[in-house]
Amino acid sequence: MDFDLIARSLPQLLSGAGLTLQLVGLSLVIGLALALLVALGRLSTLKPVAALTGAYVFLFRSTPLLVQIFLIYYGLGQFAAVRESFLWPLLREPYWCAVIALALNTAAYTGEIIRGGIRSVPFGQVEAARALGMGGALLYRRIILPQAFRQALPAYGNEVIQMVQATSLASTITLMELTGVARAIASRTFQPVEVFVIAGAIYLALNFVVTQAVRLGERRLGREAAR
């Protein structure tokens, strides 16, 4: 172990971890909002809406994330219409392409998790709410979604951990997040073990924080349920 190398590369690795966190945070927020739409779309009684969201989920779950990132970053720029559109300032930046790809990807997986959560809410709950005169958005906000989220939380925790790892693919489109920094240092120094051990340890620490947060969330939501 070359401790000098570790000390020298630690600041770079930590700044890479900062970018990793940014990518995770942004894509999770956007992805969760999209996922809710996907889940509701999949459960919709309108056939075209259900079919469209179903196709979306199938598309993103049956192809590797790397293809999705490359399609958005390299692929879309092929079309003049895209290059002249108002979206181009976003789509020409690797940063935003990574965020968009990650968000669209996690929305497909999370949508299915939320859909499972919604389906797990007993129908008696809906009946009772309707008997009290609730309907539409209020029924979803007060009765269905809170219980659905509680049910979905453990699975969502796993998805968040998958997302932390998925951000490593942003390094393939020039972003220097944690994996990208580690690779660059390894190819410069040819001492891969030290750098990758540190990078791995940072990922494990991030996972630990996520699992603890999920456990805390479960306990809180469980307490509310018991009341």
Partner: peptide, 22 residues
Amino acid sequence: TTVVRGVPALLVIWLLFFGGSG
């Protein structure tokens, strides 16, 4: 299982790419 499931697959590939021959 904990370490490999906790780090990105890409990191494992790079580790083996740079460190495997050694």
